[in-house]
């Protein structure tokens, strides 16, 4: 996921994105950002809410609850005072093309 530098909340979103690097896919051993699982980040200052749109590699992934739980912990540690809402979406469906160059390098190391 790439955050537009002209975005008004660029800095805050980058903090969230960096925090999400702490959440690692247990099988592949790389973080969910480089794996391409995070689709969108919205920060609502007035309601102190961070909404995340993300997916899983497959809808039947048995780790869904664990990963979303870890996402909440990582984001709320990085942005104290904010509530995190994780919305799992299946469209567009995740595929291997979503893995970043850094992710590919980590996978093949």
């Amino acid at each position: 996921m790439i955050i537009d530098i002209t975005d008004k909340q660029y800095e805050e979103k980058m903090v969230v994105l960096m925090a999400l690097h702490e959440v690692v896919d247990p099988e592949l051993g790389i973080n969910i950002v480089d794996l391409g699982l995070v689709y969108n980040i919205e920060i609502e200052e007035s309601s102190k809410t961070i909404s995340l749109e993300m997916t899983l590699s497959t809808p039947s992934c048995p780790l869904g609850g664990i990963i979303t739980g870890h996402v909440k912990i990582a984001v709320e540690q990085a942005m104290p005072g904010f509530d995190t809402i994780v919305d799992l979406v299946w469209e567009p469906r995740w595929n291997y093309d979503r893995i970043s160059e850094a992710g590919r390098a980590m996978l093949d190391s």
Partner: peptide, 10 residues
């Protein structure tokens, strides 16, 4: 959508 934890067998 709720996380698909219900797919995780005991």
């Amino acid at each position: 959508m709720m996380p698909p934890d219900e797919h995780r067998p005991l």
